[in-house]
């Protein structure tokens, strides 16, 4: 089951590569949030406990509702244009994404021969990290950068479940909260940037140089 969800997660990354609308990014984030929540909730279906529900519920709350809504609100408030303004052609980008993903799957498979690894979630998570970085590098809009950062964070989360690290609940919650606060601050900064610098893309950030 986890494998199926991870593959869906990977497909959402491909969608990310071809969509040219900011809204598309937000929906992908929402979808990834849902997938991650299901992955986290699966082990608790067998032995149900209320305590075990805290993390998945927080995850859904933050990744599916709060953050996407917040980003949508910023897009509406700032009246950001709906296209993402890529710096390279969409097709090249898709090619890059596919090559990297394939490469990561092959490498993870080789690595799994030495270490016991859950290859599909591991590789999907790592692909999301790499693609998040690509989004940050090859897109001009700052709001899309925030989305890229969140894809990267989602990737790390999935990756974490694959590694089966036993992080205590308190710390998992702390991580989620930290990410939320950072995105919240980024939103505030974006608001200020659009009002004082009147623009939303990286080209306006060129004042500070050596």
């Amino acid at each position: 089951m986890e494998n199926v969800l991870s593959i869906l997660f990977c497909l959402s990354l491909f969608y990310l590569a071809i969509t040219s609308r900011v809204k598309g990014y937000v929906s992908v984030l929402q979808l990834q949030g849902v997938l991650l929540s299901i992955i986290v909730i699966l082990p608790f279906l067998k032995n149900f406990s209320v305590y075990g529900l805290i993390l998945p519920v927080t995850l859904i709350l933050i990744k599916v509702f709060l953050i996407p809504r917040y980003i949508n609100k910023i897009i509406l408030d700032l009246d950001i244009k709906r296209v993402i303004e890529p710096t390279i052609q969409q097709f090249t980008f898709l090619l890059l994404v596919i090559t990297s993903t394939v490469l990561i799957f092959v490498v993870s498979n080789i690595l799994s021969q030495n270490t016991e690894l859950n290859v599909i979630p591991f590789a999907s998570g790592f692909s999301a990290v790499v693609i998040g970085i690509y989004v940050i590098i090859f897109r001009r809009k700052l709001i899309v950068h925030v989305a890229g950062f969140l894809v990267l964070e989602n990737g790390i989360f999935l990756f974490g479940t694959a590694v089966a690290s036993e992080l205590p609940m308190l710390i998992e919650l702390g991580i989620l909260l930290d990410v939320f606060v950072v995105v919240f601050l980024m939103g505030i900064a974006l608001n200020k940037i659009s009002s004082t610098l009147s623009g939303f893309d990286v080209s306006i950030l060129g004042r500070l140089k050596d």
């Binding site: 990267l152 590694v163 980024m186 500070l208």
Partner: peptide, 30 residues
């Protein structure tokens, strides 16, 4: 404006950096 740009860059780059450190921590578990 300068302070705003500095804040954005710091927040963004360090957050990405720290995310990388988290991958490192997961590798340690591995």
């Amino acid at each position: 404006e300068e302070a705003l740009e500095a804040m954005w860059k710091y927040l963004f780059l360090v957050s990405v950096g720290i995310a990388f450190a988290f991958i490192g921590i997961l590798f340690l578990t591995l």
